[in-house]
Design a protein around this nucleic acid. Structure first.
Length: 898
RNA sequence: GGGCGCUUAGCUCAGAGGUAGAGCGCCUGCUUUACACGCAGGAUGUCGGCGGUUCGACCCCGUCAGCGCCCA
């Protein structure tokens, strides 16, 4: 016997553990079944499950469970990435509490410590994914730093280098002074900062008393200025172009150049150019062939080595002694000192408050310092071409489609990808340097030594590059490295290309783009995935982004504790409309938890009424109208649910099943079944019991992808089979059960019409009224006869009296209509006839308006001439119906007033 | 400034060139022995504004407005 209420907390852990242990989530390449493959976008190993993960993984799990039930050899590949910066940060913080520093420990010991941390704490998110019910193939769990994946990284790096697609170059990078490493553009976020706009005066060479004024938000970089730029068409400065300015403090002579980068509208119209510390200035520097001295070191402290030689004393303008005093000073302290000195020299003209966007490291939280450094680059522009082509010709499709534009925009303007990071935790770059600095990129130190020996004609000592690769470099290989590449495994053969990548739009550049580039390059031009399903961000009920500072964060694990994993999953699924953010209102969760309870109670009801699972019951044998009606509706639900999932419409999938389960199955079928179940034993009762258990079985299967726990529990408790068996039970298909019986729909219409009339007339709920049935088609009258017990029970009426002719039944009372049959509720004395008259008049007005509208439409010659035949016929039918409705209501009004 | 998206019931959102929908909320009534996490009934929409195409526009086109996101 089922418990009185569904209690998710007591069964989720048990059910999940049983499924995992049963091997139901495990793919097997030796199986004949066609593959279905999703690789999880690898969560960060330091991470824990947030609501965005819950959405992302719910959608993946729904797809995987659905396809698995359809008989596919489903593989959902689990794992995490090593998150270079984040992990290093976590462990360094841990060390700090012990009073230790990474630099003191040395690289080896530090890495050992990171692995130790990973062993102890790196499994958080994978444990949490189990609570969500995610049916990942845990036996295959991978980690980007594990042996196999590291081999893949090595192979890719070496091959790309030999192909000339990886090279070293000195370029401007986003430098994070906290981590002292290059970071990706994508790890930089712009933050609004209240600062100042300072106007500086640079003396013009050879024109005493004349200055060119430049506005800047970063005065400390002026030490590295190598030009002043003005707009070529700016008349104010036309005579200065080609002349020089004397850079204050350093005394350096710098050219005044014409470049359209300078905006005449902004600031003073002249802009200082510091090529080594600003991306725009860097481009200007390249255009004008300017020197690019760096003036800030790895920690963003003032560094003079590249400008020291040119320091010159200029009376009232530059003092080398002052500049030297800045050496080693932090950039913000240097800013203050420089401003003070400029002020003293009367070269600081104005200070205005100014709010502007400043790039910050998303993890360190400090302003990024663009720095000119020697790094390893990957030729992304070349690799991007096949990726763009694959999306253009539809080998990979985005869902929703419009995200392809975002992908194209980024890929067509892609910059060289800086892949080196000045960290310890990560894949160490397989590059060794000879005594003269020549580089040898090989798969191992031995190979590098051999290559060096061949090159120099003798054995030499090599030094290995200390840097590691960007974490995304290894993530980019994830769709094939996890399948065993570079080994040609059975898994790789069967499961690549994968079917779908499910991710948020914010991650298109991180994962999608890079996986596409690497997949196409290394897998013989085969795309890594056929579909990219993009979902929105999870926001709070008011549409605000969740953030710790706002305190509006919803923790999925708490939600699971409160409502059950099924309700959380169903909610996320129902709200996942394509291209929209998910506004998660706790009220919605309550609503879908109620849905789970509803399903539970329906099952309980059947159990209490002697409905038992009968695997031999065949739907084709059902003859009764009610059974056939339910089977046809179940067919529709199966077809619609499947179509929705085929199209990645998770919202439609959820609402189809919500409606079918609650409205069709519980509200109508079960209510119609009650008189039969309470009645005498016999073939009719057997059939109702049979169809009840059969369709409930279908419902459990249909819902299982989104509500794996409650469905498995009911599957087992009711006797359909072991809980774990539902994981691989066949997903229902539309079976061709035909159209739903009109007889049931007519009975439903009759009940609804009578209920509506009763309610409008304030008939006491408990009152049982007489019911007279007027003239109608033979089929309709038969339907009302067949379902008389249901109508009596659900509409609270006496056994219907079928009237012999239209004249009968006249007399005061309420009236209603079910399709083509008038229904009379003689209510003289019981009911407020004036209220009934009012109700009828209102309905009549509505019907008359409809009639008039249709008549006008048909009277339009253009409509007659140009509309499709079928549309005209339909409109005529509707007009006839409306006219009949008006006539019926007129008759009812007449009866009442007589 | 450039690009993309959105605007439909009180809220959150579906929606097809030909009859505007759902869930929640709201109002009313109900211990109808599965379920009050329930049952039944009900109200609410110039489908953002304007113009165009069409026999017919919520839908297609143009334009304006407001909101959001991305990039600069």
């Amino acid at each position: 016997m089922l418990d009185k209420a569904f209690d998710p907390a007591t069964l989720e852990a048990r059910l999940y553990a049983a499924s995992e242990a049963s091997g139901a989530f495990h793919a097997d390449p030796s199986r004949a079944a066609a593959p279905y493959t999703i690789v999880i976008p690898p969560p960060n190993v330091t991470g824990s499950l947030h609501i965005g993960h819950a959405l992302n993984n719910t959608l993946q799990d729904v797809l995987v469970r659905f396809r698995r039930m359809q008989g596919r050899d489903a593989l959902w590949m689990p794992g995490t990435d090593h998150a270079g910066i984040a992990t290093q940060m976590v462990v360094e913080r841990l060390l700090a509490t012990e009073g230790k520093k990474r630099q003191e420990m040395g690289r080896e010991a530090f890495l050992e410590r990171v692995w130790q941390w990973k062993g102890e704490s790196g499994g958080t998110i994978t444990r949490q994914l189990r609570r969500l019910g995610a049916s990942l193939d845990w036996e295959r769990e991978r980690f980007t730093m594990d042996e196999g994946l590291s081999a893949a990284v090595l192979e890719v790096f070496v091959r790309l280098h030999k192909e000339g697609l990886i090279y070293r170059d000195t370029r401007l990078v986003n430098w994070d002074p906290v981590f002292q490493s290059a970071i990706s553009d994508l790890e930089v976020e712009s933050r609004e900062v209240k600062g100042n706009l300072w106007t500086l005066r640079y003396p013009v060479e050879g024109q005493p008393g004349r200055f060119i004024r430049v506005a800047t938000t970063r005065p400390e970089t002026m030490l590295g200025d190598t030009a002043v730029a003005v707009h070529p068409e700016d008349a104010r400065f036309a005579d200065l172009v080609g002349k020089h300015a004397i850079l204050p403090l350093t005394g350096r002579r710098i050219p005044i150049v014409a470049d359209s980068y300078s905006d005449p509208e902004k600031g003073t119209g002249a802009v200082k150019i510091t090529p080594a510390h600003d991306f725009n200035d860097y481009e200007v520097g390249r255009r004008h062939d300017l020197p690019m001295p760096s003036v800030l070191d790895a920690e963003a402290r003032v560094m003079l080595s590249e400008i020291e030689a040119e320091l010159a004393a200029v009376e009232g303008v530059a003092d080398p002694g002052f500049v030297r005093s800045l050496a080693g000073m932090d950039r913000f302290a240097a800013r203050k000192a420089i401003l003070a000195e400029l002020e003293r020299l009367e070269l600081l003209e104005a200070t205005e408050p100014h709010t502007h966007q400043v790039p910050h490291g998303d993890r360190s939280g400090v302003p990024i310092e663009p720095r000119l450094t020697l790094q390893w680059y990957c030729d992304a522009a070349t690799l991007a071409k096949p990726a763009i082509a694959a999306v253009e010709d539809g080998r990979t499709q985005f869902v929703p489609r419009q995200y392809e534009n975002l992908f194209f925009a980024w890929m067509r303007d892609i910059q060289p990808w800086c892949v080196s990071r000045q960290l310890w935790w990560g894949h160490r770059i397989p590059a060794w340097y000879g005594p003269d600095g020549q580089v040898f990129v090989e798969r191992s130190e031995a190979e590098a030594l051999a290559a060096a020996a061949a090159n120099y004609g003798r054995a030499v000592e090599l030094t290995r590059d200390p840097d590691v690769l960007d974490t995304w470099f290894s993530s980019a290989l994830w769709p094939f490295s996890t399948l065993g590449w570079p080994e040609q495994t059975a898994e790789l053969k069967k499961h690549y290309p994968t079917d779908v990548l499910v991710t948020g739009f914010d991650i298109i550049f991180f994962w999608v783009a890079r996986m596409m580039m690497m997949g196409l390059h290394f897998m013989d031009g085969e795309v890594p995935f056929k579909h990219v399903v993009i979902h929105g961000l999870v926001r709070d009920a008011r549409g605000q982004k969740m953030s710790k500072s706002k305190g509006n964060v919803l923790d999925p694990l708490e939600l699971i504790d409160q409502h059950g994993a099924d309700a959380v999953r169903f909610t996320l699924c129902a709200l996942a409309s394509p291209g929209r953010d998910v506004k998660l209102d706790p009220q919605r969760l309550e609503g879908y938890r109620a849905f789970a309870t509803k399903l539970w109670n329906a099952a309980r009801f059947l159990e209490m009424n002697g409905v038992r699972v009968d695997a031999s019951w065949r739907p084709e044998q059902a003859e009764g109208v009610l059974a056939r009606w339910l089977l046809a509706k179940a067919d529709d639900a199966a077809r619609d649910a499947t179509a929705a999932l085929d199209a990645f419409r998770f919202d439609d999938y959820a609402s189809t099943l919500y409606g079918f389960t609650w409205n069709t199955y519980c509200d109508w079928f079960i209510e119609f079944a009650k008189p039969v179940l309470n009645g005498p034993d016999g073939p009719e009762k057997d059939e109702v019991r049979g169809v009840a258990q059969y369709v409930l079985g279908q419902v459990l299967r249909l819902l299982h992808p989104v509500m794996p726990f409650i469905t498995a529990e009911l599957f087992e408790k009711l006797g359909y089979g072991e809980a774990v068996a539902l994981t691989t039970a066949a997903y229902p298909k539309a079976e061709g059960q035909g159209a739903a019986s009109a007889a049931v729909d007519l009975a439903i219409a009759a009940i609804t019409a009578i209920r509506s009339a009763r309610s409008a007339l304030n008939v006491p709920a408990a009152a049982v009224l007489p019911l007279r049935v007027g003239q109608g088609s033979a089929a309709s009258l038969q339907a009302l006869r067949d379902f008389a017990p249901q109508i009596m029970r659900l509409a609270r009426v006496e056994a219907p009296q079928f009237l012999a002719d239209a004249a009968e039944g006249a007399g005061p009372g309420a009236s209603a209509v079910a399709v083509d049959v008038p229904l009379f509720l003689p209510l003289s004395g019981v009911v407020d006839l004036a209220a009934e008259a009012k109700r009828l008049a209102k309905d009549r007005a509505k019907a008359e308006a409809e009639r008039a509208k249709l008549e006008a439409k048909l009277a339009n010659p253009g409509f007659r001439a140009k509309a499709e035949e079928a549309v005209i016929a339909e409109t005529e039918q509707r007009l006839a119906d409306a006219a009949a409705e008006v006539a019926r209501l007129d008759a009812a009004l007449t009866r009442i007033s007589s």
